[in-house]
Simulated scan of single mutants.
Amino acid sequence: MVKVEIVEEKDQQDSRSPYASSSSSRTSSSVSLSSVGSEIDREESFYERLAALVDIVPPTTRHKISTRISNTAGFFKSTGKLVGNLVWIVTTSALLIGLPLALSLEDEAKIVAQEKEMLAQQQGQQMLAPSMYPPPNQPQQKGVVPPGF
């Protein structure tokens, strides 16, 4: 934990400090804070600045946050594993059971279509082929016989 102390300087040798003024009063400030070197240290990275903020958050709060993050990550990991296993089971079952079933149904449909086609061809040949016997519902024509026979 960080402990903050007020240190009073009796020597004012460092005249660059904006807080060192000729007046002894702490409430009056003649130097603005903008004159303080507010430039960002170019050598310090964003990660280093974030890591420095760890000391601001109390340890109990840090523990609660890390516990919640680890619990959430564990939940998503186990849920993802479960969903992956279910997808694996469904796709494997579909390949092992569904694909052969679909192929056999397709073969059966081809066989039925061929049988229908063969029946249609047989019926078409029967209608087109001249038969020796006339159809039963038409009267027979008597042939014209020339005289003298």
Rank of each mutant, 00 (worst) to 15 (best):
Q126P: 01
V145T: 15
P100Y: 04
P100G: 00
A52Q: 05
L95R: 13
V83L: 14
Q123F: 06
L95G: 08
R42Q: 10
T79R: 10
G98C: 08
A120E: 12
N71D: 13
G37F: 00
L50D: 03
L53K: 15
K3M: 01
P135F: 13
A129S: 14
K10R: 10
P134A: 13
E8R: 01
L86H: 12
V112T: 14
D14N: 13
V112M: 10
A52K: 08
T92R: 05
P100V: 02
D107Y: 14
F46Q: 14
L95A: 11
S24D: 08
T27G: 00
K116S: 09
P18H: 01
F75Q: 04
I89L: 09
L101D: 10
P18C: 00
V144Y: 11
V7D: 02
A120K: 15
M127D: 07
M118K: 15
L50M: 14
Q126L: 08
P18K: 03
S15T: 15
Y19F: 09
V54R: 14
G74W: 10
F76C: 08
L103D: 03
L53I: 07
Y19S: 03
N85R: 14
V36A: 04
P130Y: 09
P130K: 14
L95H: 12
S34F: 11
Q125W: 09
D41Q: 10
D11S: 08
V31H: 13
M1R: 12
A120M: 10
R16L: 05
L33V: 13
S34A: 12
L105G: 06
G143Y: 14
P146W: 05
K142R: 11
L53D: 09
P130V: 07
I97T: 12
V7K: 12
K116Y: 05
P134E: 05
G124W: 05
I6N: 08
G37L: 00
V36H: 03
P147D: 00
